[in-house]
Amino acid sequence: MTARTNLAVSYRRAGRNTEAVDLLTKMVADYVRLLGEEHPSTLTARANLATSYRQAERTAEAVALLAKVTADSTRLLGDNHPNTVAVAGALRAWGDEA
């Protein structure tokens, strides 16, 4: 799972956005199936997918998904957890750019 996630992130960084989105979409489904909807790794996979949506100029999908990740992270991990702080900050930044 980690290797496939790293590959997807590498695709995104290389500008291979379609491949990144396709692989991360599969990864999210795998994380949900193996670990459940509320596992921190599943939340991270969703955040990675949102970032890939944004880079692929699928802004509405990116913001909607990251808003859900932020809400879920806040509920499950708390306001001050580093993952919550990171996704909430990214969501605010994306909103400022829109």
Rank of each mutant, 00 (worst) to 15 (best):
E61D: 14
T5R: 14
T59S: 12
A93M: 10
D72F: 10
R16W: 06
A64V: 02
A64Q: 10
A64M: 04
L91F: 09
A90I: 10
S41V: 00
N17Y: 15
E57R: 14
A3W: 06
A50R: 01
S41R: 08
G78P: 10
D79Q: 14
R12P: 05
N48K: 03
A29N: 11
M1T: 10
Y31S: 10
P40L: 05
E19T: 09
T51F: 06
T2P: 00
R58D: 05
A98Q: 14
A71V: 09
T44L: 07
R54Y: 15
A86G: 02
T84R: 01
L43K: 12
L24Q: 14
L66V: 05
A47D: 11
L43D: 07
D72V: 09
T44Y: 03
K68S: 12
L76I: 11
N48F: 02
T51A: 15
T42L: 07
K68M: 11
T59D: 13
A71S: 12
N83C: 01
W94P: 07
G15Y: 10
T5M: 11
E61R: 09
V21L: 01
A86S: 14
A8L: 06
Y31V: 00
V28C: 07
A29W: 00
G36Q: 06
V87G: 05
R33N: 13
T18Y: 08
W94S: 10
E61K: 12
A8C: 09
S52V: 08
G89E: 12
N80I: 01
R33I: 03
L66Y: 01
